[in-house]
Simulated scan of single mutants.
Amino acid sequence: MKTRRQFIFYTIPAALTLGHTASATAQASHVDENSAAAIALGYKNDASKVDTKKYPVYAAGKNCGSCTLFQGKAGDAWAACGALGGKQVNAKGWCLAWAKKA
């Protein structure tokens, strides 16, 4: 490095990139079925355990993995959910916010 300006020019962007990468790869925690948000949405980690009398809108095949709000790729077991504050939900789960993926 020839000058302080060149040093700053090269190190600051690299440090910012490393910090951004570390926070992006940090995994969100799994949603707790007993949390207030999960209870409000009727979230269950296993859709087969949804109380169909309490939630008549539920139907077999409706699960987090097939929902628009599921932010994972096809085949991911857990991924962040837009309805539950970015917490990770089980692809086999379900909640009232379910909306069919386009």
Score class of each variant (00 low, 15 high):
Tyr58Leu: 11
Leu69Gln: 12
His30Leu: 10
Gly86Val: 05
Leu16Met: 12
Asp76His: 03
Ala80Trp: 02
Leu84Thr: 09
Leu41Val: 05
Asp76Gln: 03
Asp76Val: 13
Ile8Gly: 02
Gln88Pro: 04
Leu16Ile: 15
Ala74Leu: 10
Ala59Gly: 06
Ala26Glu: 11
Ala83Thr: 04
Ala60Val: 14
Ser66Arg: 14
Ile8Ser: 03
Gln88Trp: 02
Ala91Leu: 03
Thr52Asn: 13
Leu96His: 03
Leu96Trp: 02
Glu33Tyr: 11
Ala14His: 04
Gly42Ala: 01
Cys67Tyr: 05
Asn45Met: 07
Leu96Phe: 00
Ala15Asp: 01
Leu16Glu: 09
Met1Gln: 07
Leu69Cys: 11
Gly82Arg: 15
Ala74Met: 11
Gly19Asp: 03
Leu96Pro: 01
Gly72Phe: 10
Phe7Pro: 01
Gly85Tyr: 07
Lys62Leu: 03
Gly75Asp: 05
His20Gly: 05
Gly82Cys: 09
Tyr43Asp: 03
Phe9Pro: 00
Lys49Tyr: 04
Gly42Ser: 03
Ala26Ile: 15
Gly93Arg: 04
Ala91Asp: 07
Ala26Pro: 04
Ala14Met: 10
Cys81Leu: 09
Lys53Ser: 09
His20Thr: 12
Phe9Arg: 14
Ala24Gly: 10
Ala38Asp: 03
Thr21Lys: 11
Lys101Leu: 12
Lys100Pro: 00
Ala14Arg: 01
Ala80Phe: 00
Val50Cys: 05
Lys44Asn: 02
Trp78Ala: 05
Lys2Tyr: 07
Thr11Gln: 09
Arg4Ile: 13
Thr68Cys: 00
Ala40Leu: 05
Ala36Cys: 07
Ala28Met: 06
Leu41Thr: 09
Gly72Leu: 03
Leu41His: 12
Tyr58Pro: 15
Ile12His: 04
Cys95Pro: 10
His30Thr: 12
His20Lys: 06
Leu18Asp: 02
Lys53Met: 06
Cys64Thr: 15
Lys101Val: 10
Ala14Asp: 01
Ala102Ile: 13
His30Glu: 15
Phe7Ser: 01
Ala77Gln: 12
Asp76Met: 06
Ser66Glu: 09
Ala99His: 05
Lys49Ile: 05
Lys101Glu: 07
Asp32Glu: 07
Asp51Val: 08
Thr11Asn: 07
Lys100Arg: 07
Ala24Thr: 15
Leu16Lys: 12
Ala22Arg: 07
Gly19Leu: 13
Ala24Met: 08
Lys53Cys: 01
Lys62Cys: 06
Ile12Cys: 08
Val50Ala: 04
